[in-house]
């Protein structure tokens, strides 16, 4: 090949790549600092846009999109973990340490913080915001449309709603002002936490559990077969002696820790469980 041709090809290549870069102002080296923003990033960004996600996303108990997540290097949210990835965008949540974020901003790195998704509204908004940040708003819209579609198709709610409690170790539970609480309502259950006066997050003590006598409990343990005072509480003999023998609905913790399209699956499973309970009761 003549030298000129070689030269021309090089020129053409450089021009083209410049043109492409100018076209896509999308960030190309995104670092996420929170397991839940990790999930949305994995859901909405192109694989080559992602530079690093948190170490929690490599854990089965926390990461719904584990298979995808395993392809990326991890960070522990500290500035010195983040800098080697030379990020052009850092996405954090409201839980990230403000000191780390200030340090990154001083180093001229773009930092965006997403609000915490604790109900449907903030979840859909957050997904939309993430889609815009990564430069694929159409993908975000598609995810949102599908979620809303599925939520509309949940089975109808009957009048006598059985009582359910989200019952985590130590009696921790969520009220109706939470994503799981909303899913509980939409699936046609009555939330024990609401009856106990808990709106967002709180503890159901043993006495209240015995008094309310829930027909079902939701368990979503992060790690199984470990031992602590908290995890010993559901084994308290008072519950057994009170004849509380609720249906236990097991949900993988990866489905409940972060909000996303899988949260709709939670609502669907809860609705399914309610239908099964009422057919059992009918027999």
């Amino acid at each position: 090949m003549p030298a000129l041709a070689k030269y021309l090809i090089v020129i053409l290549f450089i021009t083209l790549s410049h043109a492409l870069k100018a076209d896509t102002i999308n960030p190309q080296r995104i670092v996420s600092l929170n397991v839940c923003t990790d999930q949305w990033l994995l859901l909405l960004a192109d694989p080559e846009q992602i530079a690093s996600i948190t170490h929690l996303s490599h854990e089965e108990g926390a990461s719904y999109l584990l298979a995808k997540a395993l392809k990326y290097p991890t960070n522990k949210g500290r500035a010195e973990d983040i800098l080697p990835f030379k990020p052009d965008l850092v996405i954090s949540s409201a839980y990230t340490s403000p000191n780390t974020l200030n340090l990154l901003r001083q180093l001229q790195i773009r930092v965006e913080t997403l609000p915490i998704a604790d109900d449907w509204e903030s979840t859909l908004k957050g997904i939309q915001q993430m889609a815009q940040l990564v430069g694929h708003p159409e993908r975000g819209q598609a995810v949102i449309d599908e979620m809303q579609q599925r939520l509309k198709q949940l089975p109808a709610i009957s009048d006598d709603k059985p009582i359910i409690a989200s019952y985590e170790p130590n009696g921790y539970t969520v009220g109706n002002q939470s994503l799981l609480g909303q899913a509980i309502q939409q699936a046609g259950w009555q939330n024990a936490a609401e009856l106990a006066g808990i709106r967002q997050y709180g503890q159901l003590d043993l006495e209240t559990m015995i008094r309310l006598h829930p027909a079902a409990i939701i368990e979503s343990p992060y790690r199984r077969n470990t031992w602590s005072r908290a995890e010993a509480l559901p084994q308290h003999p008072a519950l057994r002696k009170a004849g509380i023998n609720p249906q236990v609905i097991q949900l993988p913790s990866a489905m409940t820790i972060c909000a996303g399209p899988w949260s709709v699956t939670v609502a669907e499973r809860l609705a399914q469980a309610r239908l099964e309970l009422s057919t059992k009761a009918a027999h």
């Binding site: 170790p169 130590n170 009696g171 003590d205 043993l206 992060y222 790690r223 470990t226 031992w227 602590s228 005072r229 908290a230 995890e231 509480l233 308290h236 003999p237 008072a238």
Partner: peptide, 25 residues
């Protein structure tokens, strides 16, 4: 270091003492 994710939160239970929700066992 404990395997249970709830262990660290229970430090205060051991250092401050607690009597809630104990059973006859």
């Amino acid at each position: 270091l404990a395997p249970s994710p709830y262990a660290m939160r229970e430090l205060v239970l051991w250092t401050m003492g607690d009597l809630t929700d104990r059973s006859m066992d």
